[in-house]
Amino acid sequence: QLRFETNGEEQAKKVLEEAKKHNLEAHVTIENGKWVVHVK
């Protein structure tokens, strides 16, 4: 499982879109005010 700390909602959405293009499972959590994308 990969973990990407992003700078906010915009970047998190871009990472999610990329993951979906590659048929990867991804979800976002907010940790300590940071948007974190988890990709399987």
Rank of each mutant, 00 (worst) to 15 (best):
E5H: 05
T6H: 04
I30Q: 10
Q11I: 08
T29S: 11
V36M: 03
E31G: 02
K40A: 14
V39K: 00
G33H: 04
N23E: 06
Q1L: 14
A26T: 07
Q11R: 03
K21Y: 08
V36H: 02
E25F: 10
E10K: 07
W35F: 09
A12H: 01
E5Y: 08
N7P: 09
A12E: 01
K13P: 00
F4D: 03
L24D: 02
L24P: 03
E10Y: 08
H38V: 14
V28P: 00
I30R: 08
H27R: 07
V15H: 06
E18V: 13
V36Q: 02
I30L: 11
L24E: 02
H27Y: 15
G33I: 00
T29A: 09
V36N: 01
K20E: 09
T29M: 08
E17K: 10
K14F: 11
V39S: 00
H22V: 06
L2Q: 09
Q11E: 15
A19V: 10
E10M: 09
K14G: 07
F4R: 00
K14Y: 13
K34P: 00
G33T: 02
A26S: 05
H38S: 08
V39T: 03
I30H: 11
G8W: 11
K34V: 14
A26R: 00
V28W: 03
E9W: 15
E17V: 07
G8R: 10
N7R: 10
Q1V: 15
K14H: 12
A12M: 06
I30E: 07
K20M: 12
Q11P: 04
I30P: 01
A12W: 03
A19L: 15
A12K: 01
L2E: 06
T6D: 04
T6M: 13
N23C: 07
W35L: 04
E10H: 08
V15E: 03
G33L: 02
F4W: 08
N23T: 03
G33S: 04
E25W: 08
H38I: 15
T6I: 09
K13G: 07
A12Y: 04
K34D: 03
G8E: 13
A12V: 06
H27Q: 10
K13A: 12
A19S: 04
K34N: 06
A26Q: 01
K13W: 12
V28G: 02
